[in-house]
Design a protein around this nucleic acid. Sequence first.
DNA 1: TATGAATGAGGGTTCATTCAT
DNA 2: CATGAATGAACCCTCATTCAT
Lengths: 191, 191, 191, 191
Amino acid sequence: MNKRSGIGSKKRIVDAALKLFSEYGYSKASMRMIANASGISIGGLYLYFKNKDELYLTLIKSRLDELADVTRQSLKGISDPADALIKFISLQLAYAKRHRELILVQGREYGFVFGMSAKKKFFKVQRGFIEGVIRKGIRSGVFKKCNVKETAKIIICTLRGFILSLIVETDALFSPHECSKLLLNGLLKKE
Amino acid sequence: MNKRSGIGSKKRIVDAALKLFSEYGYSKASMRMIANASGISIGGLYLYFKNKDELYLTLIKSRLDELADVTRQSLKGISDPADALIKFISLQLAYAKRHRELILVQGREYGFVFGMSAKKKFFKVQRGFIEGVIRKGIRSGVFKKCNVKETAKIIICTLRGFILSLIVETDALFSPHECSKLLLNGLLKKE
Amino acid sequence: MNKRSGIGSKKRIVDAALKLFSEYGYSKASMRMIANASGISIGGLYLYFKNKDELYLTLIKSRLDELADVTRQSLKGISDPADALIKFISLQLAYAKRHRELILVQGREYGFVFGMSAKKKFFKVQRGFIEGVIRKGIRSGVFKKCNVKETAKIIICTLRGFILSLIVETDALFSPHECSKLLLNGLLKKE
Amino acid sequence: MNKRSGIGSKKRIVDAALKLFSEYGYSKASMRMIANASGISIGGLYLYFKNKDELYLTLIKSRLDELADVTRQSLKGISDPADALIKFISLQLAYAKRHRELILVQGREYGFVFGMSAKKKFFKVQRGFIEGVIRKGIRSGVFKKCNVKETAKIIICTLRGFILSLIVETDALFSPHECSKLLLNGLLKKE
DNA sequence: TATGAATGAGGGTTCATTCAT
DNA sequence: CATGAATGAACCCTCATTCAT
């Protein structure tokens, strides 16, 4: 019915799939549901994606790329390491809130199929950002000396936990401000 | 292969299910797979569990209870808030490492079926522990004043992210020691 | 084997199901059997019928409607009550013989599921026909006075027993002519 | 637990099975249900009956024999053919009402397994009774001449339809008195 | 004789994928 | 490009039957 360009159809599929996968998970979101939601026929889905796996993968990749871009963009031009960290955290949290589908990046359903390589690389890149910030902070004397790699891992895990909370229990979400404060100052009172 | 003791059978089923659910997720782990892995016939599975849902739920519940117990046990008798926090963190991480199946507690596949209530309650209890520790620390003058609830959320999310990393990318695991240090002292150098 | 016309498929399913249900009963006729007999794949069955119940119900409903129609048609235009009764009886018997599947209307397997409402209504309508005929006969002085409702029930039960005999023992089938004769004249010799 | 004699156990099984088969039909009444209802273990069922088929068959046979006996008993000693017919009809209907399980004699579910031979024989015997009565009536000049075999079939079918009505729609049951009257006198007014 | 845990074929149903149109 | 009827493997679950005790 829709003589629209293939690119339009593809976008409609991606949008619908994003919504359904993030709501129902990989297994419970059927190709038929995606077809109905996108207004494309079942057969049509297979014109743009070889199979369900590929569709899912494409979604993850696109989200990952977008987030990486956003991160890169917003971090350049900020020279103060503390500011950079604050910016980074609030950015990730804001993005996660706006794109709940990001949750599917965490999906473990398909780990054994995709081999995680895309995700691994993504998180490595993210960690690289943080590590850079921390190292810079230490060099400039703003941050105390610490195990850079470990610290970066911890920060990433905190953000990852936040994303998961989007689904599991939304009342567990914390504020970027408080998070930054804690990470920067710690709990202990400095005498 | 024949007529084993009932108790042994149930344990074998639970063990196999734990492994398969945590590796493949709820949907992709089939009852047939669990039957094969446990050396029990398909019909035998239904002698011990009414259906797949109940089996899954039983698993989650038992893990949740166990972890809650372990947490409670190890926290009592520690009066110093900083020590308590350190203990709490290292405990959770150690437990998560030993029981990779814990990941299924995070499963989002079944949220819309089980209503999450068990999980929500569990995480609320965990958060309660931390809040208690923080409050005590503030009262005793060891910790600086802060938003207790938010801080507790952040810590829980960090641990949650750690559990998730168990599956997604094991090289992202951080050490309890470094985590405690960061949370206690923060990044900023106190001049 | 491939992509036949949808309409043809549905008819083939109905025909096969009719045959199998009436031969084996609801429970023992499996969807796989019906699929094989109709030359349609198992999945294909569910393209036309939501589930086994619906398929069975559709069959019953269609038979019931058809027979009711046939009855109505052939009775209009006959004014003599005796002729009408004879016609009615021979019609029912002829129809039952041609459509042995009618037996499934009698099926008791599904009473507690379907609630029998369709059947009850059908037999009530049939009884209504007979009652009308009898009443008319009495009014016109052709029939003797009698308990109209009871008499109608008896006639319906006789026909119902005939249908059942189609399955149980075909040599128990009686001729419409003899049946009419008995009902009209009785056994006793009028002196 | 019950060290009762085997005969007591067998009776309990038969009673339970009779009730369950007549209520749920052959397929939907499971061996487990019968075991529970009879207070015998599942394995115990197979001590007395080779399998489900045999249990079912035994039930039918016993009911059939009992009814045949009752019929035989009550007919001997009645010399008037009209009285005999009336007696026969009221007897059958009363028995059917008291033993709703009789319905399973009509069960068509298992026709293809049992070959119907038992049932066929039973109904043949019943028909023999009626034929004898009719023939006697004709010979004695009480009944008018008629096709004996056909007439007997019709009467049997009427009773069979009555039994079926027990399940399908109880408000279709007729009275033995009205039935006898109709069969004896017919509908037509004798001028 | 009696038990009931264990088995596994088979039941109804779903769904990713294909292909004639 | 696009459609959707058709396919069939696989899923969850039931139940008649067996057998070690």
